[in-house]
Structure formats: C-alpha cells, structure tokens
Design a protein around this nucleic acid. Structure first.
Lengths: 229, 229
DNA sequence: TGCAAGCATTAATCTGATTTTTACAAGACC
DNA sequence: GGTCTTGTAAAAATCAGATTAATGCTTGCA
C-alpha cells in the first residue's frame, strides 16, 4: 500500500533522526538506489523532500550530506513523528511540552473570545467523549476525543498559525499514548479540566479558559515525567 | 544561477499562496512541464516538495489538487517568505503577534533558568545597543539589536523548538519595521523592558523575566494596532 | 611552494517506455 | 428507475538510459 516514495522517505528520515546517520555523513543517490532497490526517480524525489525538511543538503561532486539538527524543520509533522518513533523521544516530548505551555493557554483565551457556536458544541462534545471513554478505559477512543478537543480549540482561536499547531499537538498526544507514556487510565482531574475549558470558552471567559488550559499542560507534563522516571 | 527546480517550486508556490490558484484547482504534471518548459523530473520533484508543504495533493487519474490553507506548513520558511512576498501581509503579522504572546514569555522564563553566561552577556549587550540606537533614532541598527535580542533569548531557552521560532520572530520584527508599523522613534518604555528582561535572565528570576516579556509583546501589539488604525 | 589546467565524480536534467491505480461511464440486472 | 458490475482510459508512479553541468581533487609546470 505504502508507495515507494513514502517508504524511502520514511526510512531515510528515520535513519537520520535516530542518529544512525549522524550530521556530516555523506551519501550518494546511487547508493540509495542500490540500498533500497528503487529507481532514481524515487530516491531523487525522496531526497528533495528531505532537503526541504533540512535533513539533507545536496552538492554536486560531493553527494548528500546529512545536516545538523539545528537546521531541521522541527515543526513538520513528519519530522516530529520520526523523532517520536526512533529518535530522542524524551527530549522531544519535553520540548513540545514547554512549547505547548506557551501557546495552548493563549489559544484557549482567544477561543473564548472568538469561538463560533458550532465550535463550542464540538468542544463540549469532545470533552464529554473524554469523560465517557476515559471512565470506560477505552484508550483509543479517549485519544481520539482528546485530539478532537485540542484541534478544535486551536481552530477556534481564529489564528491560523495556532491552528496549524494542531498537527503538532496531535503528534504529541498520539505519540505519548502509542509509546505508553500515559497512565493506563486517564486521571479524573485531567478529564475534568478539559470540561472546564470547554465551559469557559462557551461562556466567553478568556481568563478562566487560559488558567484551566495552563493546568492541563502542567498536569500532562507532571504525569509524563513521573511515568518516565 | 537559480536551479530549475527551485525556480518552478517558487513560482508555483507563489501562485498558490497569492490566491491565483485557489484551493480545489486541479493541475497536471504534463501541464506544468509545458507551462514552465521543463522536463518531468524537475516538475515532479517540485510537486513532491509542494505536496510535502501541504500546498498540493497528488492523486492518480485526477492530477494535482491545490489544497486549502488549513493544511499548509505555515511554519516553513519558504511558505512564510511566499506569503510575505505575495500574500496577505497584515493578517500574517497579526497571527504572528498572537503567537509570540504565547511562546516568548515562556522562552524568557526558561532562559532565566538555563542561559549560559555567554548568552546573558549577548542579551545584555543587545539590550544596551537598543538603548543607544533607539535614542539616536537609528532604526536599522535598532532593528538589528532587537533581532539579536530575541534570537539570543529563544536560543537561551534551551528548547530547540523555541529556538527554531527565532526565524519567525525575525520575520515579524523586520516585517513591521519594513512596512512602517513601528513608531518613528522606539518608545522609551519598550527599550526599558528589554533591559529588564536581560537583567532578570542574568539574575535567574523566571517570573520577572516572563512578566517583562509579556509587557513587551503587549506594548508591541498595541503600538502596531494603533499605527494600522 | 604556489598556481593553473585537466580529470573524474556526482548531482541535475532530459527523454521514452511501462506499470498501477482509479474515476467515470456503459451496460447488466433487479 | 435504481443499483451493481465491468471495462476503459486518464493520470500519476516507476523504471531505465543518456546527456549536461558543476566542482573537488590531482597533476604538472614554473
């Protein structure tokens, strides 16, 4: 099912973020063709994308040079996923957590000022689903509701760049569930906080929404650090 | 000099973000070959990158469909540049301002905990330069110091994702000066706040740093909105 | 020792052919 | 008439061969 292009892209991307191919390593297109048994078009297009993501640089007569982490497009969902899958998961999640503690409270407060009735409804419904599936212990359905909640909230902020961070948050939530960095049963307190945010947004209370969202991130960070220790 | 690949990439990218090719428009690879007079490899690789940026989606038997803005990788430097060049500059700057109000205070507070002595020095020196050039009314030198201040601070947060947002902040600062959305002489208060952040970071006082940085963003937003009215 | 010419390597580009997927339509059936 | 199957063609995806253009490195000369 997975197309050859995506296959090569994923595999090389993962080898780079995992550190198997450290910065400075030099590859060649011919080498990739042989390694993966694909035609030049496939490896060529994969390399172009990796170069766009800042993971590789191409140079004539030299080849493909693996780039230092400082040049990576760390906001690209693909890079985030690779790093969560095979890279420095802990560092990555800490970075993302700190970042979220910055922009999600702002998004919550903006959403309280700008959310449409439909978005308020979607938010409440997602929060309710979290209650139901959280209590039932259905982690997959809980995750789905969690993702819906945060994506809707960021969308409702009316700020397209905050909305664009929805992909990043989705990767974090999915990643930490997938890698078992979550309590086996979601905490009652976390679930409750989501409901509080939803109500504050509906009531148009930006400060209440912001504070509740700050608590969500703090709680999530604490839960995760404990779990990793 | 500019390679064919980058040429096609830039041109198609700009046509999309400018709205000349609205979401839903369907193109074909053959069409691009003809339009730009390049071979399939070139258009193919450009399309692959555009697809990675979320601007296009490819589908067999259909062609290339221009995607809605909601899927764009709006944090990619290429996309930011295209939008500042041919897109909606003012909306873009407002979005970026709201985003900054989220992550810069967090970065300031983290920097107070983690900045190295060298970074503290660079921060203080940038703040001093802002005083000097601000009072002298040298806008270009002031901007340079301002950019140095914020980039250093984000770097000093010790969080690579916050550091990666340095480029974004630079765009905001440069953009608003370039488009005359700044007071002709920087406000004494704004300059003073930067010094306060630098001192708080050096002293290791995260809360003071955070509050001062919040004030910087609030002041900047107010100044810009007034100017636009 | 320094410099310039030439060589060899590798990405960049062009081209033609084949394979695979799949939207759409024509026909078959109820 | 409406739904289901089947066939066809359109377009991307992939493969493969050849040519072009930069450019790092070496060689030879002064």
């Amino acid at each position: 099912m997975a197309a050859l292009h995506d296959d090569v892209l994923d595999r090389v991307g993962q080898r780079i973020v995992s550190g198997e191919l450290p910065a400075g390593t030099v590859l060649t297109l011919d080498g990739l063709d042989r390694d993966y048994g694909v035609s030049r078009s496939v490896s060529r297009e994969a390399v172009r994308v990796l170069a766009a993501l800042g993971l590789l640089a191409t140079k004539r007569r030299v080849g493909l040079t693996v780039q230092d982490r400082s040049g990576w497009q760390v906001f690209d969902p693909r890079v985030i996923r690779w790093r969560l899958d095979v890279g420095d998961r802990t560092d990555q999640l800490r970075s993302l957590g700190e970042l979220r503690s910055g922009f999600e409270p702002v998004a919550a407060s903006l959403a309280a000022l700008r959310a449409t009735p439909e978005q308020c409804g979607a938010l409440s419904s997602a929060a309710e689903d979290m209650v139901i599936h959280g209590r039932a212990g259905d982690l997959a359905a809980y995750l789905d509701a969690d993702v819906r909640f945060h994506s809707t909230l960021l969308e409702a902020s009316g700020n397209e760049m905050l909305a664009a961070l929805g992909g990043v948050v989705t990767e974090v939530l999915t990643g930490r569930t997938h890698h078992h960095l979550m309590p086996s049963a979601p905490l009652e307190e976390a679930i409750d906080l989501h409901g509080r945010v939803a109500r504050a947004v509906r009531a148009g209370e930006p400060d209440v929404a912001r504070v509740a969202m700050e608590a969500i991130i703090t709680e999530a960070t604490a839960a995760m650090t404990e779990d990793m220790a």
